[in-house]
Every structure is written in structure tokens, then in C-alpha cells.
Design a protein around this nucleic acid. Structure first.
Lengths: 250, 250
DNA sequence: CCAGTCGCTTCATCAGATGAAAATTTAGCT
DNA sequence: AGCTAAATTTTCATCTGATGAAGCGACTGG
């Protein structure tokens, strides 16, 4: 063999030597990021296999496997002898963890922040309502624990963000609905990458505590109407904050 | 060569000679259905590559590509020299179109019908609310057209189902939020496979018309409060119907 | 009984060969 | 000259073989 393929480091993060350094994962990341980032536009063809082999420094098998993974996520479509084309945005698996990461990292567009904030407003009050209907004792306890963590971390911006995500996740978990919980897990992936929007002053964090308290209390008392209303207040405050943030810094 | 691999027909559906007959797609379908269906349980290893080659009648490349696609959907994890294991359910991309199909087809479990109904109750009122906030004139027009189609098909069970799905999709589309719309597209995949739950009497279909009418009217008038409430009524009726259906026939 | 080493299993990756289908070009005919 | 049909080229599809790497277990020596 002449192509020193194993020597090409690609400057990737290389966190886990097993999962992330796999050749086909390199291909998935490279092409996926380009497609979702917009430099490969829907309807156009990506470079042919042979070119990708040279460009990415991997073998044809790795290219094929990577392309197949992206096709499985709706991003690509291969046609024999006609090349591999980028599928229209409507075909993408928008709530796939990878697709979402490529969209919101490293820097989401202002429009995407609005999409995210609206999604929370649309989803979270209803989720809180179902949580109040379905929560069992253990689920209520986990919400209360998450609430306590929220109070405990109100002075530390970074841990507070994680505690906030954990609280909302506990609410979704209480709804006893894996699809609903999955949606929130995807939301939290996106939220983590717009954390700067959430990293407000410590005083601001403390202002959000009563709202969360009301959500937890309503679920504890199985008051679905109140749970929904309290959660709506929380996420609408978050949406207003996000809008203001976008207006100020963009 | 001796193994007449190209001759193995596998008796698949063969709808599209390009997309569905691809060897690696066979692998994805076969393994994906087994995993989501529960015959391959999380934590256990799937057969080794060589066995899958024999069992599925495809080459090793096809097996590898298929396994990579399923790994991309969070269903599998390959470890060098340790085989390929089924990942825990929490890792699955539950809102992937394929995963959802394997779960709800051919016959969803009663519990999954409840999950679906709850998801709609949690999601659709909020979506209708955001739709009322964000809908532009064109979106309102599309909702009205979908409503008209609903009235026009009230006497035909089959077209009525499609018109119903189209109406709800138009509401989600009006919210101008691609993530929200994506969730509904996945819901509609699942709903189509539980259509028997929805195929009620013609009289019952007609009873749902006023509710839909109220939703459309509230959005038209940008009355988000009313839109939410009207939609909640619609989906809670649907949930009650589904619950009753499950209780009667299961 | 424990520890270290060796070998086996199994996935990872590349390379080559053959095939098939679609797009493009070319040649021939009217 | 224009159109049609055949030939060619491009490009992905698939199988096979070879080599490598990493984990797991068995076996042996102290």
C-alpha cells in the first residue's frame, strides 16, 4: 500500500479512540456539517466517491459507509451512475441528534434561536400538563430533587444551566412518554449550544425560581391546568429573553 | 465467483427498484425491525458479520453499511473485536422515520397508542397557539383549504383520514417552525398505521367537524388562546376515542 | 493461586474486480 | 439540419480478499 491513510490525523477532537476516530464517522461529520451548514446545497451533487477518498484521506469503504449513514438521516440520496445528491431540507431528520448538532453548533443563526424558543413555548406547557396527569410518586420526587438543585445552584451560572435542563427533563420524564422525552432531549442539545443566551445575571436566574416552583407544585398536586399555565410563563419568559438577546447582540 | 448472491430475491416488496432493493437497505430493514420489535434485545450482541452475510444473503459490504446506518440511528454500537451490540432504548432516535415505522407497523402495541395520543394532547394545542401567533395569510389560506377538504370528504372514511392529517399538518406548517412541523410529520407516520382507530363511523367523522372549524377560525383571527383551547378539545376527543378503542378490542 | 503471555475472535479498513444503470456523446438516418 | 438510436463513459453497487487492531480468554510458568 502506498497511501499512508492511517497517518492522517484530520485534526479532529479525538475524544474517544473508538467511536469518534472511526473513518466513516469522519466522513459523516465532514459531509453532515457541510450539508446542514449550507455549503453543500440541496439538489446539487456532492463530489464523487473517488474525489472524497482523496479529499478526506479515507478508503472507499469508509466513504460509502458514511454516505449511507447520511442517507439514513435523509440528508443524501445516492443514484446509481448519477452521483450522490443532497436531498431537500424537508427530507432531513431534523430531530436527529447529529443533524441538530450540526445546525446549532458552533453558532446557531438568530432564526434558529427563535425556532427553538417557539418550539419550547409550543411544547413545554402541554408536556407539563400531561406530566401532571401521568406523574407517579417517583417522578414527582425527581422533579422536586431537580427543583432543589435549581435553588442550590442559583448563584453559579454554569451549574444552574445544567440544573435548569435537568428540571425540565424531569418534567418531561414525568409525562411517561418516551417520544415526548426524546423531543426534549433534542431540545436540550440545542439549548446547550445557545447557553450564552441563558447565561444571564445571577439575579435573573433567581427571578426564574418562583416560576419553576409553581410548575413543580402544580405537578405535585396533579393540577394539570396550573402546571400548564406555570410552565407557559416560564418558557415565555425564556422566549422573551432570547428575543431580546438576539436583538441586542446580533 | 461461486455464491450466486445476485440471484437471491429475498421476496421483499420491491416497490422501487432503486431505493428499496439496495442490499444494505435490506439489512437495515431486517435488523431494524428485529431490534425495535424486540426480538433483538438491548445489551445483547447481534450475529457476527459472517453469519449475517449467510443469513441475509448479501455481501459483507452490505452488512457493514446497514449496520452503520443503524448505528447512526442509535440502535447499534460496534466494538472492535467485541461484536455489535444493541444499544439501550434511551439511545434510539425515536423520532426517526424508520424507527417509528418499525415501532408502529404492522400493528402498534396498545401502550404505543396511548403514547401517541398523549403526545398529540401535549403538542397540538401548543402548536395551534404558536400557529395563531405566527401564521401569515398564505398559511391561513392553506388551513382553510384543508378544512374545506375535511368537509368534502366527511362521508368517505379513507379520504377523510388523509384530509384530517392534512388539516393538522397545515396548522403545524402555519407555526413557521420546521422542528415543530417535523414532529408532526413523524406523528402522522404513526397515525397512518393506527388509522383503524380513526376509521370510525361517518357520523363520528362529522361530529369532529365543528371542532376543526373552531381551530381554523381561531387561527384565522389570530386568537391564540382560543386556537389552543379548540385544538385541545379536538385531540382530547381523539385520545378518548383511542382509549375506548383499545379497551374494546384489546 | 496468581500473573503474564499468547492466540483467537471479530470488527476496521483498504484495494481490486465486476456489474449495472443512467447520462452523455456520437453516429447514422431521414 | 434535425432527430433518433446506439455506443461510450461515468458513477455508484456489490462482492471478495488481505491486512490490521483491539479486546477476550485460555494456557502456562512462577
Amino acid at each position: 500500500m502506498k497511501t499512508g491513510a492511517p497517518g492522517i490525523a484530520c485534526g479532529a477532537v479525538a475524544t474517544d479512540p473508538q467511536r469518534d476516530s472511526a473513518r466513516h464517522v469522519q466522513v459523516v461529520q465532514a459531509l453532515g456539517a457541510r450539508i446542514v451548514g449550507g455549503s453543500l446545497v440541496p439538489g446539487t451533487a456532492i463530489p464523487i466517491e473517488e474525489e472524497l477518498v482523496g479529499e478526506l484521506g479515507v478508503g472507499r469503504s469508509a466513504v460509502r459507509e458514511g454516505v449511507k449513514v447520511l442517507a439514513g438521516k435523509g440528508l443524501l440520496e445516492t443514484r446509481r451512475s448519477a452521483g450522490t445528491i443532497v436531498r431537500p431540507r424537508e427530507s432531513w431528520s431534523l430531530l436527529d441528534a447529529d443533524v441538530l448538532s450540526w445546525r446549532f453548533e458552533p453558532e446557531p443563526r438568530p432564526g434558529d434561536i427563535r425556532v427553538l424558543a417557539d418550539l419550547r413555548v409550543a411544547l413545554e406547557p402541554g408536556a407539563a400538563r400531561v406530566a401532571a396527569e401521568r406523574a407517579d410518586a417517583a417522578a414527582v420526587r425527581r422533579i422536586d430533587e431537580a427543583l432543589a438543585a435549581l435553588y442550590a445552584t442559583a448563584d453559579d451560572p454554569e451549574p444552574f444551566i445544567e440544573a435548569d435542563l435537568a428540571f425540565h427533563q424531569a418534567v418531561f420524564a414525568a409525562a411517561d412518554n418516551d417520544l415526548l422525552l426524546y423531543v426534549y432531549e433534542m431540545i436540550s442539545i440545542a439549548l446547550r449550544s445557545v447557553r450564552q443566551v441563558h447565561t444571564r445575571s445571577v439575579a435573573h436566574n433567581k427571578e426564574t425560581l418562583p416560576g419553576h416552583e409553581r410548575v413543580a407544585q402544580a405537578i405535585r398536586r396533579r393540577h394539570h391546568r396550573k402546571a400548564e399555565e406555570a410552565m407557559r410563563t416560564v418558557v415565555e419568559v425564556a422566549r422573551a429573553d432570547a428575543e431580546q438577546h438576539v436583538r441586542l447582540c446580533c
